[in-house]
Computed example of a mutant assay.
Amino acid sequence: MPRSWKFTIIALAVAGIASIPLVWLLDGPDTGQLVGATLQFAVAVIAFCWAVWPDAPRGVRARFQAVRTGAARAEDGGVAGTGVRVRGQRARHMASARARDTGKATAKGRRSKANSGIEIS
């Protein structure tokens, strides 16, 4: 969920929770008003918890991590990189990938590539 939606839902939930004593209960509530206040409170608490709760991991969400990668060097028109480089839609279908404590990578010559981390294209 986008961060702006989370903030909006949290603000509305807090407003819903705070308005219960102000609107419903200050005027001597009857049974209907107590039921309405209870439902309003329950919905506001559920919305608040749903917005604050961290997103559950999904199998289609890709997570990549490159830690302490080695140096990458490019010579004579080559391309070299370290860290994580993901291009295209292919990465959406991958679960995860991790590179840690990798060695040096050198690309020599035209159209050569070197990466000491993760590259998916």
Rank of each mutant, 00 (worst) to 15 (best):
I118G: 04
D30L: 01
G70P: 14
V84Y: 11
M1L: 00
V86C: 15
D76T: 10
I118Q: 07
F7C: 03
P54R: 01
K6F: 07
I120L: 05
R90T: 12
G103A: 03
W5V: 08
W5S: 06
A56E: 14
I46A: 10
A37L: 09
S4D: 14
A51M: 07
L25G: 03
S96Q: 11
F7M: 11
A71N: 07
P29T: 00
S112Y: 05
A51L: 08
A72Y: 13
R61W: 04
G59R: 02
Q33L: 00
G77Q: 15
R85T: 01
S96P: 10
A95L: 11
P57C: 05
V79C: 12
A11W: 02
V35A: 13
G32A: 12
H93D: 15
S19P: 04
P29K: 01
R100L: 01
P21W: 00
A74H: 14
T8I: 09
V84G: 14
V86T: 08
V60T: 06
F7I: 08
N115L: 04
A99Q: 06
N115W: 13
G103R: 11
A42G: 03
H93W: 09
A47V: 03
E119F: 06
Q65M: 08
E75I: 05
G103D: 09
K104Y: 14
T38M: 07
R87Q: 15
R58D: 02
G36K: 07
Q89M: 02
A44Q: 02
N115K: 09
T82D: 14
W50I: 05
R87I: 09
G70C: 06
T8M: 09
V79G: 12
S4F: 11
G109D: 09
A105K: 13
G28L: 00
A105E: 13
V84H: 14
A105F: 05
A80Y: 14
L25I: 05
V84R: 01
S121E: 09
V86P: 15
L22W: 02
A74Y: 11
A74P: 15
S4A: 10
T8D: 14
L39C: 03
R68D: 06
D101M: 08
A107V: 05
Q33H: 03
P57D: 10
A72K: 15
